[in-house]
């Protein structure tokens, strides 16, 4: 008698797994990581490595201590660590990296139940925490190796303080030769990652494009100057935030229209903070605020089931 497996349909399965999705995100982040190391030097590599290692180790130890099944192999902790590392400037010390990664993984992710249960993006929250707690040392950005001036004022700070004449060339902005965090400056590398994620169907183009477009359009309307608006788009953490943080599955609405509203809200809040807030940069705050609103947006955007007249209450 053959032993046959009896289980529920469907009996076949799409290829994507949580691990393969996270691996794709890591691959998509690699151009920006390489660019960051080229632009900011070996210290960038050190920071990224410390963040990734601490993140993975934190999750491993947490699961060990609370006797949960190990989830390190799904690579989500590595993604969080890498994203955090890339959103720090090279002025960050090893201690900043360790504190940030432990906070991201233990406080924001694991204490809420681990992967899939956190309500805010761990990397974004940790970055905001470090940004506020250590504003003096890692508030702004570090200058690249190729910058003529070593002062680390970021383009956004320059715009905010009215020193626009000190802004780098647009080409430098695209290539990433400007002050800022490790992974956020090289627009071309980030866009490469975006294209990869869309081709691999890990994310849809809607969130990043709507987020960036909202910032661009509002900036044009406010400044009446498309060039400044372009600087706004290429500055700060907008691209890395829009492509890699605002597309996080767990902390954004599950439905397509919800994702669009989420992106629109992110763009709006970013612009509000950048132009009228006391901080030069608002991407992380915008994503964090929209993370909190995400369940409500999701609920509003639920599609009406096929064949039902209207929403049941």
């Amino acid at each position: 008698m053959e032993k046959l497996i009896v289980s529920s349909s469907p009996h076949i399965h799409a290829k994507a797994t949580t691990q393969s999705i996270m691996r794709d995100v890591l691959i998509a982040l690699s151009p920006a990581t390489v660019a960051g190391i080229v632009l900011f030097g070996w210290r960038a590599l050190l920071i990224v490595c410390v963040c990734v290692a601490t993140a993975i180790l934190s999750e491993f130890l947490f699961n060990l201590i609370v006797k949960k099944k190990q989830t390190v192999s799904d690579l989500s902790a590595a993604v969080t660590g890498l994203l955090l590392g890339l959103s720090l400037p090279t002025t960050a010390t090893v201690w900043h990296c360790i504190v940030g990664s432990v906070f991201a993984i233990i406080v924001v992710k694991c204490l809420f139940g681990g992967i899939g249960c956190n309500f805010a993006n761990p990397a974004v929250t940790a970055r905001v925490m470090l940004f506020i707690a250590f504003a003096g040392s890692i508030g702004g950005g570090a200058a690249t190796k190729f910058a003529e001036i070593t002062a680390g004022a970021t383009p956004l700070e320059l715009i905010k303080t009215g020193e626009s004449y000190k802004l780098p060339e647009l080409l430098d902005m695209f290539l990433g030769n400007r002050s800022g965090s490790i992974g956020e400056t090289c627009a071309i590398a980030l866009i490469l990652g975006f294209v990869y994620l869309v081709i691999r169907r890990v994310i849809s183009w809607h969130t990043p494009v709507i987020f960036v477009a909202t910032v661009f359009v509002l900036s044009v309307l406010i400044t009446n100057d498309p060039t400044v608006a372009l600087y706004e788009v290429l500055s700060g953490g907008l691209l890395i935030g829009a492509i890699f943080m605002a597309t996080d599955y767990v902390t954004t609405p599950i439905n397509k229209y919800g994702k669009m509203i989420f992106a629109l809200g992110c763009g709006l809040i970013t612009v509000l903070i950048r132009f009228w807030g006391s901080y030069p940069e608002g991407v992380s705050f915008a994503i964090l605020i929209m993370n909190i609103l995400s369940p409500y947006i999701e609920k509003l955007c639920t599609r009406i089931p096929f064949g039902k007249e209207k929403r049941t209450k």
Binding site: I21, T71, S76, G114, I115, G116, C117, Y249, I254, K259
Partner: peptide, 8 residues
């Protein structure tokens, strides 16, 4: 494994 809320 845990739902990652991907929306697929």
């Amino acid at each position: 494994t845990a739902c990652i809320h991907c929306g697929r």
